[in-house]
Design a protein around this nucleic acid. Sequence first.
RNA 1: GCCCCUGUAGCUCAAUGGAUAGAGCGCCGGACUUCUAAUCCGACGGUUGUGCGUUCGAAUCGCACCAGGGGCGCCA
Length: 600
Amino acid sequence: MFDLQLAQATKLVRKGLKHLGLPAPEEIAWTSTPFSGQWGFGTTIGFQIAAEEARSGKKVQVPVRAAEIADLLLKEIGIPQGFARAEAVRGYLNLYVQPTEYARTVVDAVLKQAEGFGQGKAKSERVMVEYAQPNTHHSFHIGHARNAILGESLARIVEFAGFDTIRASYPGDIGLGVIKCLWAYKRFHDGKEPDGVHERGQWLLSIYTEANALLGLDEEDEDLKPTERPEYEAEVREMYAKWDAGDPEVRQLWEETRRWSLDELDEILKLLDIKIDVFFFESEVDEPAKAIVEALIQRGIAEDERPQGGPVIIKIDEKLGLKKEKYRTAVVLRSDGTTLYLTKDLALAKQKFEQYQVDRSVYVVDVRQSFHFVQAFKILELWGFPQAEQCFHLPYGFVTLPEGAMSARRGNVVLFKDVMDETFRRVVQIITEKNPDLPTEQRNEAARQVSMGALSYAMLSIDTKKDMVFDWDRALDFEGQAAPYIQYAHVRANSILQRAGKLPKPLAIEHELAPAEVQLLDRISRFPDEVQRSAQEYKPLLIANYAFNLARDFTDFYQHCPVIKAEGKVRDARLRLTAASKQVLATSLKLLSIQAPEVM
RNA sequence: GCCCCUGUAGCUCAAUGGAUAGAGCGCCGGACUUCUAAUCCGACGGUUGUGCGUUCGAAUCGCACCAGGGGCGCCA
């Protein structure tokens, strides 16, 4: 928010340095001063210049010389326009704004722009975020939820930051797992169908688990092998072949059960307030993927070993002229001519670049697939797509249970729907205790917002790289650094505004601001920059942290500064500051895909 | 064997190469006649895995090592 003032200050500093006969560094950066309750910006150019002098042979002690330079510079430039105070401290040059003046600037800007405050200027680049890619014939568990929540938040952030944004989902609707499920259905449960969207989806998961139990979980697991297993396996293979050949009966069964899963996904996405723009299905990129293999062979990128009974491969290291193994060799087509995950992702990437004109392509996918994407992006580069450089895999750590990894195949998963329902029950209970007068309808609405928010925040407030242990007790802990704290701050702000009635018109702020007010204003003013940083680094965590800090600053203000009980212009100014805080709390929550309740 | 990620307070986690490494939880002690206590105030708690380096300045960058996790030609 202070770009203009800082740019002018930078100009002045350059002029001052020239006048002093000191070399100016290429970039002069300003960062917020770390002293709470003070509203200012500092630069470290004193250190940079002193260090440069030391390097060029002058005998100087850098910290001493840096302090000297800062002092000289301060005397030379005085107080730049737009600032109220300047100081040189141990080599730092700090500029402080006049709080009352900028308090008005910030508050008026927020209230004028409303939900648009913090929004970045439209950028020319288009970014596609791919997330919410669960397999069909499973059900949606908390691991999928981490993915979906992370992806949605990221999409909201990049969109708000100014990128043209497309939300894409890529469900895995075919593969051996799917066929196993179809087989078990056909063999043991033919014609059955439970009522209810979630019931059907979850039932498929149980059949999938059953199929894996009957077929053995993996090759080494001989103990689990039932006597009928060879026969079962043959049936599964046969079914896959039939699907491949387009057998009407198998296809019909596939279509129907696939629909059950997709209906459930649809339902979950609605609950998560996610609207996907483009659905890519794995079954639909199979054919284009085969064509791509031919193109890669033609271009001399891929090598066809099929004549020798092998697959089609790409020796990536060799193509790049690397001696040490790094990208290794990728298989892009099985020896039997069928495609692989990698092949399909290459086809999909091409489609994203060409059909959707995507400049930046972000993949929100589990960390264990990192190497897959390293290879895929490298192949796209070899293939000649300049967009390959702007492909980004946003990996997220695994969600495990306290007792170990979840496994859909083994059936020990925690379903997201169950977590949601339980969280909702708990929140209803808490609201009933804390706010017994709230009418049932409002209570349920608030409970919905708070319970979903708590889950989302838990997913977003940890660095994506880190694994998460899903613990019921912790997931249901709504105190401290959690969404309900932020939502509560929003509710408090709303309550004040409701009691006060009409919002006062813009006015000059004349009272001496309390440290809590300065801190809160400073925080609010940083929101636009924080949005940009979060978008550029693809890090929703930054907004999660910001929202909590803002809530804390507001709570501190609420604690120390009476609003309604204040008088005259102080009251009016604080009411406007309260309204601005409420707005930015709501916007930052929205970027996290969390709703801001009016009451709770 | 090679590659990637992680290691920060008892626990869960933050921290633009920058000023005194911060929160939450837990524990201990306090605050509701007040704009709602889902809150607040205070206390306790650190050799940022180890070592060496780069830098005026390192949790942050480099190298080596230790510990944990993940991955490495026809799974996704």
